[in-house]
């Protein structure tokens, strides 16, 4: 199957979006979305980790024995996550603190493993890198959308800047956990409407 680079990239952004279509990687997705700055950093971090682990796994795929490939993949992913964690601690200590365990949890994020298993195992390094990056971007876009709704209604601000007037009453529920589930449920609902109509 000869897919072009652009097609590979676009597939993960919309048609095959990891969050809304494949329901992967929600674990760490929702916890960071009450604030857009954290979400953006998390998205960039995940994109970095997915891209480079797909690249590495794909480059090494012929040398990794089949029966230990899971553990090798996890180790490769963990290496990149450690790099990410150290960089965040050094340059953005306050955000690193706010993200807490969720940076480490990128390791067990199913998106990375999913892309590694489904794509990097059978494609060349360049395509795998593009695939990994686009999965990360697709994930980040959905997260930013959720964070946008939550931060706007929960704090009346975007990226920490106040946009709604003082008279706006913040919706406390938007800061708490349940709202994230409601919003993602609704997004999936809306996103799937065209898919169901086609059938």
């Amino acid at each position: 199957m000869a897919e072009s680079k652009k097609e590979t990239f676009m597939a993960n952004i919309w048609k095959n979006n990891p969050v809304i279509v494949q329901i992967l990687g929600i674990c760490s997705a929702l916890a960071v979305t009450n604030n857009m700055t954290n979400t953006l950093i998390m998205g960039i971090g995940l994109t970095f980790a997915t891209g480079f682990s797909s690249l590495t796994i794909s480059a090494l795929r012929k040398y990794i024995p089949k029966n230990v490939r899971m553990i090798v993949q996890v180790l490769i992913i963990a290496t990149y996550v450690i790099i990410l964690d150290i960089v965040l601690k050094a340059y953005l200590p306050s955000i690193s603190k706010a993200l807490g365990p969720y940076v480490g949890l990128i390791i067990t994020n199913c998106i990375i493993m999913g892309r590694a298993e489904a794509y990097a195992q059978s494609h060349g390094p360049v395509l795998s890198f593009i695939d990994g990056v686009s999965a990360g971007v697709g994930y980040s876009l959905i997260l930013l959308l959720i964070a946008f709704i939550r931060e706007l209604l929960g704090f009346g601000s975007i990226f920490g800047l106040r946009v709604l007037p003082e008279s706006f009453t913040p919706w406390v529920i938007m800061i708490t956990a349940p709202s994230a589930f409601f919003i993602i449920g609704t997004i999936i609902w809306i996103a799937r409407t065209p898919l169901v109509k086609k059938k």
């Binding site: 329901i23 708490t176 956990a177 349940p178 709202s179 994230a180 589930f181 409601f182 993602i184 449920g185 609704t186 999936i188 609902w189 799937r192």
Partner: peptide, 12 residues
Amino acid sequence: PGLTMIIIGIMA
């Protein structure tokens, strides 16, 4: 998944 998410939200 959409419905499941909303149920989880109510549970939360």
